[in-house]
Design a protein around this nucleic acid. Structure first.
Length: 177
DNA sequence: GGTGGTTTCGTGT
DNA sequence: ACACGAAACCACC
């Protein structure tokens, strides 16, 4: 069970964020959290510093401290298949991004949806391109399954952390479900 | 089946 | 006000 909680503008402005590196899905990952929940999950595709840069880009006002906590550990366990635990997410979003990310949570494991599907589902049937942008800005990889969104014409679409990782995630889910 | 130009809309500047 | 996307559509070859 994934609980999605939205940061207020005030929370975004002055935020204590703890971050920690972990191993999941056969990759090195970076997780981060506020006192309210997990605010970032990303793949470490290069150096740890580069991964931290990506986190800092998404939360420019956060005060980053290296530290682990229970919500981060739950997120990692969830990715490894322990989906019984509740994981609380705490993310900053525009109204449009909020609708898109909630729609992503409705896409079941082992299945995919297209950018146009998501556009229809949130009531903006022509905003497929804007949906693409919003999907790409998802700060919580895997738990908010932006990797399950593909192109109408059958293409893979893109992936913030590299198309190879997206393919791995989809192939893995396809065989496990 | 593949390519290229056009449409479309939320964001960051 | 303007340019840019993790897109889609249509025409044309």
């Amino acid at each position: 069970m994934i609980e999605l909680r939205r940061m207020t503008a005030q929370e975004l402005k002055d935020q204590e964020v703890r971050y920690n590196y972990a191993q999941a899905l056969g990759h090195r990952m970076l997780t981060a959290s506020t006192t309210q929940g997990v605010c970032y999950v990303g793949f470490v595709t290069g150096s740890e510093e580069e991964a931290l840069d990506d986190l800092h880009t998404r939360l420019p006002h956060a005060r980053l401290t290296p530290s682990a906590d229970e919500q981060q550990q739950r997120a990692v366990a969830w990715m490894e298949g322990e989906t019984g635990l509740a994981v609380r997410l705490h993310v900053s979003a525009t109204d449009f991004q909020w609708k898109v990310w909630q729609a992503l949570l409705q896409v079941a494991p082992g299945t995919t949806a297209t950018y146009a599907d998501i556009a229809r589902r949130i009531g903006h049937p022509k905003a497929c391109r804007a949906v693409g942008s919003a999907v790409g800005q998802n700060p919580v990889a895997v738990l908010i399954p932006c990797h399950r969104i593909v192109r109408t014409n059958g293409g893979w679409g893109g992936y913030h952390w590299g198309i190879d990782i997206k393919r791995c995630l989809l192939l893995r889910e396809r065989t496990n479900h």
